[in-house]
């Protein structure tokens, strides 16, 4: 009897959590947000990447300058694998003219990121998502088939606290088309040097193939760093339509840390981005 009650409770909680994350009042993450967006909307372009995409490009500014409607779907920690999932989900729903993908020192990473995969857990029962995750996550079968297990294992981002917040607290990105800004300026910089291995990334390749099959143009770029060297020639060698912005800024005033622009830097970079792609 107690065991049956436990199983019933697990199923009920699983359903409540999944429903809430798929139909949020205030989406807690970009995947949930994209899932919940009106599918009749149209977008001219979309931006994908990690936090170096979210904090760096403001679609509202682009819209004001060019009249093009876009969306920033970058989210923290995502590597090419998670970016690919996001691109797929977006292209399943919308038909933009072009997409932009931010690549940098994560270019060589092909496994999934244990943190960045979190927002995908409510969607793991979708076959396409499951088939991708099972390739890299041993526990994927358990996440899919044991009720509520995924929510206990990812409770810091998908737990009760976030569930409650999804009904109460608005997020910082929805009213800026996915862009979020940082309002601090860096004090001290520790120079760095990222060395990429000369080999193509399978997920990036898949993104290119998918866009080609759907007739969507895909552009890759590297966002600005502060005093961080990176051999972007590797990326340039393996992808088409690539542009390197990594060394365009040397002023501390534009950065919140060596890898992230602050609000001022983001506005400046967005202007440069507009000139590069939309003028």
């Amino acid at each position: 009897m107690a065991f049956v009650a436990f199983i019933a409770l697990s199923y009920a909680l699983d359903w409540i959590y999944t429903y809430s994350y798929k139909n949020p009042v205030y989406a807690r993450d970009k995947v949930s947000w994209l899932h919940d967006m009106n599918s009749s909307a149209t977008y001219d372009y979309a931006l994908f990447g990690s936090s170096r995409c979210i904090y760096h490009l403001n679609p509202v500014t682009i819209n004001q300058s060019t009249g093009l409607k876009g969306i920033n779907l970058g989210y923290s920690g995502s590597n090419p694998f998670e970016i690919k999932l996001m691109v797929k989900k977006f292209l399943d729903k919308y038909q933009p003219k072009m997409i932009f993908v931010q690549l940098d020192n994560q270019y060589n990473i092909e496994h999934l990121d244990p943190t960045a995969i979190t927002p995908w857990m409510p969607f793991i029962k979708e076959d396409e998502v499951y088939q991708e995750i099972i390739k890299y996550e041993d526990k994927a079968w358990y996440f899919k088939n044991i009720p509520f297990y995924r929510y206990t294992q990812y409770e810091t981002k998908l737990g009760a606290r976030n569930l409650i917040l999804s009904y109460l607290k608005s997020n910082s990105f929805a009213n800026q088309l996915g862009f979020t800004s940082i309002n601090k300026t860096i004090n001290r910089v520790k120079p760095g040097n990222y060395k990429l291995k000369d080999k193509p990334n399978i997920h990036v390749k898949e993104i290119e193939d998918l866009c080609r099959s759907k007739g969507v143009e895909v552009y890759f770029f590297t966002a600005p760093f502060l005093q961080q060297k990176i051999n972007t020639a590797v990326i340039e060698k393996h992808v088409q339509h690539y542009q390197d912005f990594s060394q365009i800024f040397t002023q501390k005033a534009y950065f919140s840390d060596p890898t992230h622009l602050n609000r001022k830097g983001a506005e400046k970079f967005t202007d440069i981005f507009i000139q590069a792609y939309f003028d």
Binding site: A2, A5, F6, L9, S10, L13, F148, T152, Q153, Y154, E155, T156, G159, A160
Partner: peptide
Amino acid sequence: ALFLIFMILVWGSFS
């Protein structure tokens, strides 16, 4: 007991 199980599932720190 069921309430405590509910609390463990919902508020437990598993990760």
